[in-house]
Amino acid sequence: MASIRPVISVVIREHTENAAFFWAQRDTLAAEEVPDTEAIAFVDDRLEANLDALRIAGPATWPFIIEAFEDFPEKGELFVMAHRALETGDVRRLDQAAAFARAAVDGSRGLCGAFEWLPPRVTAGVVRDWIDAADPIRIEAAIAALAAHGGSLGDRLPGLLEHRDERIRVAAKRFRQRH
């Protein structure tokens, strides 16, 4: 029985690293001027398979997710952290992901990516809370979710277009272009 646990750890670590890699790859492919939709679909399938494995592993994934981020504080690792926190409704971990987004390489992109990937039924409550937050990282993620899923900023848009934080102004302009 003792020999099974190290194998499971290796598998969870691999799925965590793969999910981070595939999401970062997907994000890069999607940002190209002419996205290769076939390549994105191929990567999406692999990403979702690894996310499924993390879902199955449940709370046991957290040490591996945190370790992956500490080793590589980048957008893919942050995506995995935010994705799991959102999907499980873990407010403490989501707060941690928002804090880590400030330290990560392109961190807000990873945080926003999780909000864009997951359906509104999973993110709606957080988006409602975060759109009026004082924290620009949280506002940016909320705008990304609304933009990705056809939501509305309503009468908030003019204020966001004039926000003191440049990232918020850019996100609001992108939102306006999409809608």
Rank of each mutant, 00 (worst) to 15 (best):
D135T: 07
A141C: 04
I139Y: 01
R169D: 06
D90C: 05
D155W: 07
E116P: 14
E116H: 06
G154S: 02
G150V: 08
D106P: 10
A133S: 13
Q96R: 15
R164T: 07
V126D: 04
R92F: 15
I131T: 04
E116V: 02
L94G: 01
P136N: 05
V170N: 05
P158K: 00
G89M: 10
P158A: 01
A144K: 04
A142H: 03
E166S: 04
V127Y: 04
I143G: 01
E162R: 01
R167E: 09
R138L: 07
R102A: 14
R102N: 12
T123P: 14
L111S: 10
R92H: 15
D155Y: 03
L161T: 03
R167I: 04
E140R: 13
R109V: 15
A99V: 12
L111Y: 11
A145C: 08
R156V: 07
A98N: 10
D129S: 08
E166F: 09
G125D: 06
L157K: 02
A101P: 05
G89V: 10
F100Y: 15
P120C: 10
P119D: 09
R169I: 06
R121W: 15
D106K: 14
R174V: 03
V127P: 13
I143V: 02
A172S: 02
E166T: 07
G150K: 03
R121H: 14
G113D: 08
R102V: 14
V122M: 05
G154L: 07
E166Q: 08
F100D: 08
G150R: 01
P120V: 09
G107E: 03
E166A: 04
D165I: 09
S152D: 13
P119S: 10
S108Q: 14
E162H: 01
Q96A: 11
R164A: 09
R167S: 06
H149V: 14
I139S: 04
G125V: 03
D132L: 05
A98E: 10
L161K: 00
G113R: 12
R109T: 14
D132T: 13
A142P: 09
A171L: 03
E166V: 05
S152F: 15
A99K: 14
A134E: 07
G150E: 09
A99H: 14
A145Q: 02
T123H: 05
V105A: 15
A101I: 09
L157Q: 00
A103F: 14
A141W: 03
L146W: 04
A142L: 02
I168L: 10
G151F: 07
A99N: 15
H149S: 12
V105P: 00
V170S: 07
A172P: 02
A134R: 06
A104N: 04
T123N: 07
A141I: 00
R156M: 03
R109H: 15
S108P: 06
L118N: 13
A144Y: 12
A133N: 04
D129Y: 05
A147D: 11
E140N: 12
R164F: 13
P158S: 00
D129I: 01
R93A: 11
L153N: 01
V126F: 09
R176H: 08
V122K: 06
P120G: 10
R169H: 02
V127K: 01
L146F: 11
R169C: 03
R93E: 11
D106S: 13
